[in-house]
Amino acid sequence: MFLYNRETKEMKLLSEHEGNINFRPIEFSDDNKYLYYMTDKDSEFIYIMKYNIETGESEKVYSDDWDVRYAYHSYNSKYYIVGINKDGKTVVKIFDKDNKDVKFPEFDGASISSVNISKSEKYMTFYVSASNSTSNLYFYNFETEEYKQLTNTMNPEINKDDLVNAEVIRYKSFDGLEIPSILYKPHNASKDNKVPAMLYIHGGPGGQSTLGYRSQIQYLVNHGYAVIAVNNRGSGGYGKTFEEADDMKHGEDDLQDCIYAKQYLASVGWVDTTKIGIMGGSYGGYMVAAALAFTPEEFAVGVNIFGVTNWLRTLKNIPPWWEDYRQALY
């Protein structure tokens, strides 16, 4: 991360470090005295710092036990908005100039995105989505603390009662590591009516399955399939150590995490364990190919959606200007 002075033409390195540490600038303060940025230096999770341009000193602004996804000030800096990736959903916090919490509408089980505060700083818009609800735009009045929904994006031909709420679950893998996942249970599933199941593996590596609306998954669940979206080791959102746990080992420990999801599904009592498949796209598609090639007896079916099947070819064909991405990819 560099700071460039347009008047003096001076370029200053701000992020001197060794190892895998993230730095990302956010914005300058209104008086141009500070640069706000995000980093995970000396931490499992991404947090917010501010850099004093005059003194060269940095101080922590906000940290959590989860990654900060985004942060920014409103137009006149009356409010400071922070988005946190909390266990598979985005939680938004708003602070005033005294760093006190500002009341924000609560939506149980939903994720908030695209928070936008008006220039007058009296109004706010944002989007709300959940596992059983498409993303909708809301309007909020800071003075009256009232909000209203402005859009209804759900297809009118879809009966919302047919959709299911997902839940975050965890199970232990072969080495005792806890694997966070998102579980979708069909309405008709029971111990007397066991259903087939599909593992859903996200893209990446470093991606994450979250509690947002997924039409493809809801379609499968509506047709009687249980779905478990596995956030195997190597997934983002659960700390630096967890994300780096499959480096140089794709198709090995991360695949075992997927296989051990079968044990969890067997424990719920309403899944037909003879009919468990695996599907995914990109990196998730690679995991499907790895499962069928390396452990052909584990899954009844595999659905590989544009998955990587030759890592050497993929890595060799990444252009030089994506070198950092190439290194992170494997």
Rank of each mutant, 00 (worst) to 15 (best):
Y51Q: 08
D98F: 08
G109D: 11
P25A: 13
S74D: 09
D96K: 00
V91A: 06
F107Q: 10
S58N: 13
N99Y: 12
D98P: 06
I46R: 11
I48Y: 01
D64A: 14
D87G: 05
Y79V: 08
K50N: 11
D42V: 04
M38A: 14
S43H: 05
F23S: 08
F23A: 05
Y47R: 11
E54D: 14
S74H: 01
S63Y: 09
I48F: 04
K78D: 14
I21T: 15
I81P: 10
E27C: 14
D31P: 12
K86V: 09
E27K: 00
D65N: 14
M38E: 13
I94Y: 01
D101W: 02
H73M: 07
K41Y: 03
T39M: 06
Y36I: 02
D101I: 09
P25N: 00
Y34M: 13
D40R: 09
N85V: 08
S63F: 11
F23T: 02
D67C: 07
I48Q: 02
S63Q: 14
E44V: 09
S43A: 14
P105R: 02
G109H: 10
F107A: 08
F45A: 04
E27M: 12
E27R: 01
D67N: 15
L35S: 09
V91I: 15
N20T: 12
Y72N: 14
Y36T: 01
E54W: 02
V91Q: 13
D108A: 10
K89G: 08
Y72L: 10
K103A: 06
A110S: 15
D98L: 13
F95G: 03
I48D: 02
S77W: 10
I46L: 12
R24M: 09
D65A: 07
S63C: 09
H73A: 02
F104R: 07
D67M: 06
T90E: 12
G109Y: 09
I48T: 06
K50Q: 12
N32A: 05
G19R: 09
I94G: 00
V82I: 15
V61N: 00
R24D: 02
K33Y: 05
Y70N: 13
V61H: 02
I26T: 03
Y75V: 07
E59T: 05
D64R: 03
K33N: 15
A71G: 13
A110C: 15
Y79D: 08
F95W: 09
T39L: 06
V102L: 04
M49I: 00
A110L: 06
D65G: 11
E44N: 10
T55H: 02
D108S: 13
F45R: 00
Y72K: 13
V91H: 07
E106Y: 12
G56I: 06
Y80R: 01
I94D: 00
F104Q: 03
A110W: 05
D96F: 07
F28K: 14
E57V: 09
S43G: 03
D30P: 06
S63G: 11
K93L: 12
Y62Q: 08
D40L: 07
R24A: 04
T55C: 03
I48C: 10
G83I: 06
E27P: 04
Y34I: 06
K93G: 07
Y47Q: 11
T39C: 04
Y34L: 14
A71L: 09
T90I: 14
F45Q: 10
G109K: 11
N52G: 08
I84H: 03
F104L: 12
T39R: 02
D64M: 08
G109L: 11
K60D: 00
S29E: 10
Y36P: 04
